[in-house]
């Protein structure tokens, strides 16, 4: 093996790490300016709790969770939806709106003239926004347990260690999927309309409105051919301490990232070519 390449790579790596650090710190400072808005966004993500209420009502009339084929106790169901809430909070992606706003406002041209792939700025902005959300999420989770003391359980350290990379990978998949749509801005300025198309299957197949066990087997089979169940359901199940195929789920997520990453890079290159042909 060539022993020289790590040395050639070292300054590049150092540069990348420095850019990452400065971008994250700057974006965190920026997001703190909007902390009130971000707190409201965190609060507006309570859909899983509403769904928990709906499911609980259905279960008391339907002979319990097992009766609906979920195989979950009431406490497990509550923990699942709390896990779904947390997973959703740290995988929210808004790159398509930010990108569209920047291209309409003409900020894209200066970004394209800097030696940094512009999408990294949005990655940093998302991560910084997640850090800003963290305290609000902790408070909401604490209030949830106060309200549902029977469901109280903290994930084991092992589960927590697995849930963290699962959430990051879920974020990566969501970010790449939405970036692909954002890149369509190069062709049509109103690419966010397409995002709506993505949102419907995401809403139902991700496990946000119901654990996937609640769906008929046929739907479930189709769902697992898509990346959606890994974006909320899988990390939520890990956090809730439920039984879940860990290795195969991680493998599937890695597979989706391996597919979406080069696809996004290719689309970006084609988009920029189109942009420079049409007049910047």
């Amino acid at each position: 093996m060539n022993r020289r390449w790590p040395r050639a790579l070292a300054p590049e790596l150092a540069r990348g790490l420095r850019i990452a650090r400065v971008l994250l710190v700057t974006q965190y400072a920026y997001m703190l300016e909007y902390r009130a808005e971000i707190a409201l966004w965190a609060l507006s993500g309570v859909l899983p709790f509403i769904m928990l209420g709906v499911w609980s009502a259905a279960l008391t009339g339907g002979g319990g969770a097992a009766g609906l084929g979920l195989g979950l106790s009431q406490a497990e169901l509550a923990r699942y939806f709390l896990g779904a809430f947390i997973a959703r909070q740290f995988t929210v992606v808004w790159v398509v709106w930010a990108f569209e706003e920047d291209s309409v406002a003409g900020r894209l041209s200066p970004y394209l003239l800097q030696p940094l792939q512009p999408l990294w700025r949005y990655v940093a902005a998302h991560l910084a926004e997640q850090a800003t959300r963290l305290p609000f999420v902790v408070v909401i989770a604490a209030l949830f347990f106060l309200q549902q003391p029977a469901a109280f359980a903290l994930p084991s350290p092992a589960r927590l260690l697995l849930a963290l990379p699962a959430i990051w990978m879920a974020f990566a998949i969501h970010f790449l999927l939405q970036s692909l749509i954002a890149i369509l801005c190069f062709w049509s300025e109103r690419a966010q309309a397409l995002e709506r198309l993505l949102f419907i299957p995401y809403l139902f197949l991700s496990g946000l409105v119901a654990p996937l066990a609640a769906f008929p087997p046929g739907v479930r089979q189709v769902a697992f051919l898509t990346p959606f169940p890994y974006m909320i359901g899988f990390p939520a199940q890990l956090l809730a301490g439920l039984e879940v195929p860990i290795a195969s789920s991680f493998a599937a997520m890695a597979g989706w990232i391996a597919l979406l990453l080069p696809l996004t890079a290719l689309a970006w290159r084609a988009g920029v070519r189109r942009y420079t042909a049409m007049g910047g």
């Binding site: 540069r15 700057t26 400072a29 920026y30 003409g106 800097q114």
Partner: peptide, 28 residues
């Protein structure tokens, strides 16, 4: 470098120094 009259590359809600730090990192 390209300076276009009204296109801003400064981050609106932060002091210019923050944007300058980002540029310093980007340009190594």
């Amino acid at each position: 470098t390209l300076v276009m009259g009204q296109k801003q590359q400064l981050i609106w809600d932060l002091p210019p120094l923050d944007s300058l730090r980002v540029n310093a990192a980007v340009y190594g």
